[in-house]
Design a protein around this nucleic acid. Structure first.
Length: 352
DNA sequence: GAATCGTGGAT
DNA sequence: TATCCAAGATT
């Protein structure tokens, strides 16, 4: 039997017996499949499950989501990370509700034209929800294929990616594309692990060049990762008459749409006090007096790490304006739970 | 093509 | 403790 056909059948058979009972596998609703795929981007299955369930309960259909308030959507996304996904999700819901009358398109090209849906996600939705024979190539599939075919070149090379998409397209089952795609991803997530793969339980080990050469750990070949820069950041808990001055971060950038205590990076040669007064003047046009240091939180973002030093502050002069944020608001602590905050800010709450 | 964009669990 | 990295998309 041809290698590709053997791989296809073996993975389908393995998946049929070993697939996890995940909430998005109980439905064929394209809306639910789409939601799960967006949430699963760069995010672990176990992390997504509770978010997915809460989200679907709050917005059972694309129409509910299309009519939702953005702060509410971001609140349901709070803690999931990559918040632009939530904003794109909201945008796509509006487009589907309006331009498609609430019915998701079923082709890869139409799906990929929607905000937040790239080649992987379009293939996943088309194959899983619509039975289209479209391949997927995520981190799992890249790893599985790079081992099956002993790909010795770096997998971030465009020519290598092109070849992997080509292979994935040949492997995907014409009759059960959704099951095959989920199967090869599940194989990568549970058997063909990045470190110490469980080759003994692998249904395709006899087809796997890396296994046959006893070197699965050599694949995939990744590019070297650079160490993340670290910054010192100051933030202000500006308090007046029972309320804190919060800002909503502008869309498009880091943590876009989330609320925060204002502040910013400490520049070279600055004291914390100097940096905080400068930042608050730049961002809100007001003068402040710096009070006690509340606490310092160490936090890692996607491409840098920070130590955020929070200070209690009082408003001295000027009327606050949203010079940086899209919106600012004096907010009592009792209402913080209505807004979505970055994880690092949430660590502040119990100390205020 | 290389940067940007979060978070928390595993090792 | 430090590092890795997970069902990627966008610019």
């Amino acid at each position: 039997m041809k290698k590709e056909l053997l791989i296809r059948r073996s993975i389908l058979a393995w998946f049929r017996k070993n697939k996890r009972d995940l909430p998005w596998r109980k439905t064929g609703d394209p809306y639910a499949v789409w939601l799960s795929e967006i949430m699963l981007q760069q995010t672990r299955v176990e992390t997504v499950i509770p978010y997915y369930n809460r989200f679907l309960k709050a917005y059972p259909t694309v129409h509910h989501l299309a009519g939702a308030n953005e702060d509410h959507v971001l609140k349901l996304w709070e803690g999931l990370g990559y918040y632009r996904r939530a904003l794109n999700l909201h945008q796509t819901a509006k487009i589907v509700a309006k331009d498609y009358e609430g019915v998701f398109p079923g082709t890869v090209d139409e799906l990929q034209a929607l905000p937040g849906i790239g080649r992987y996600t379009a293939g996943a939705i088309a194959s899983i929800a619509f039975g289209v024979r479209a391949p997927v190539l995520d981190g799992n599939v890249k790893r599985v294929l790079s081992r099956l075919y002993a790909v010795k070149e770096r997998i971030d090379r465009s020519d290598v990616l092109k070849r992997l998409w080509q292979i994935a397209g040949e492997l995907v089952s014409p009759r059960s594309p959704g099951n095959f795609n989920q199967g090869i991803m599940e194989l990568g997530a549970r058997i063909c692990l990045p470190q110490n793969p469980l080759c003994g339980g692998c249904p395709v080990k006899q087809c796997c060049e890396a296994f046959l050469h006893h070197c699965p750990q050599n694949f995939p070949v990744q590019k070297a990762k650079k160490t993340l820069p670290h910054y010192e950041v100051v933030a202000a808990a500006i308090y007046k008459r029972g309320r804190f001055l919060l800002g909503k971060r502008p869309p498009g950038g880091m943590l876009g749409g989330l609320w925060e205590f204002p502040g910013g990076k400490v520049e070279a040669g600055e004291t914390h006090e100097q940096a905080l007064k400068r930042e608050i003047m730049e961002e809100m046009g007001i003068g402040i007096e710096i009070g006690e240091h509340v606490l310092t939180v160490d936090h890692g973002y996607s491409h840098y790490t920070v130590s955020i030093h929070l200070y209690r502050c009082s408003h001295i002069d000027g009327r606050p304006r949203a010079l940086y944020h899209s919106e600012i608001k004096w907010t009592p602590k009792s209402q913080f739970n209505r807004y979505s905050f970055p994880a690092a800010n949430i660590k502040f709450f119990e100390h205020l």
